[in-house]
Amino acid sequence: MNCSAARKAIYPSPDRCVLSVETGKALDHVRQCPDCRRYFESQAEWSRLLRAKAGAEPAPDQLRERIAGEIESHQRIEGPRRLGWIAAAALIVVCLPALWFARRIPSQLFFLALCEDHIKYLSADSQLRSSDRAEIESWFRDKTDFGVRVAALGTAEILGSRLCFLRGKKAALVFYRQQGRPVSLFQINRRDLSLAALDRWEVDGAAVWRASFKGYSVAAFEQRGVVYALISDLRESELLRLASAARAEAQGY
């Protein structure tokens, strides 16, 4: 590379030039060429002199005050606005889990109470000993504020029913026996119990919620404003199958 090409490639100075494929070669040339080094040293000196001679036009004091005022007022507005956003974000971060727990914990306690009730009445008598579905439904008619449906759970045997009060809420309980194991089917008004506390599963294309408390499995679903919860120590898959059957039955009513 000759002097003219090197000077053109890294004009006005090696530290402010446009970088290109030629830059490296030009810099190599300048390093080895005393004339080019002098050229760029003079160029730097010329810029320094120009800067010194041209000087700076100092900004008027009124402009400085106006700008400082604008900066201050902007920071006064942006500061609280930013704090507002941070506070709102913090509130969401704190409140969402709190809402989640507020919704989930009472429901979990309610399902736990259902399990305890199931255990408690394992060997107790039913209030109504009957295997007649219509009789049981009729017995519940003036006892609950929702229509109780006694579903046929496949081959499960219907033993009877009772009315429960759990955590201040009414629940209709129907006893079954499947493969020799007791199965309780609780029915509770939807407004008294949320399924959000349980894990959602799909069984035969429909949503069934499941959980396990004290060694007992829970399979629940919702139908026409009523939560149905089956509790048993049957294998979970068997209980889910029964829940699916109960759901299909309840849908047919």
Binding site: E57, A59, P60, R64, E70
Partner: peptide
């Protein structure tokens, strides 16, 4: 604030008018 003189100088030298330079720096800010 650190570059106010440089900004004003540039605006003044490119417009040739002090009032325009002030307005342009204010607009920039």
């Amino acid at each position: 604030l650190e570059n106010l003189d440089g900004l004003y100088s540039t605006a003044y030298r490119l417009t040739g008018r002090a009032d325009a330079a002030e307005d342009l720096v204010q607009e920039t800010a």
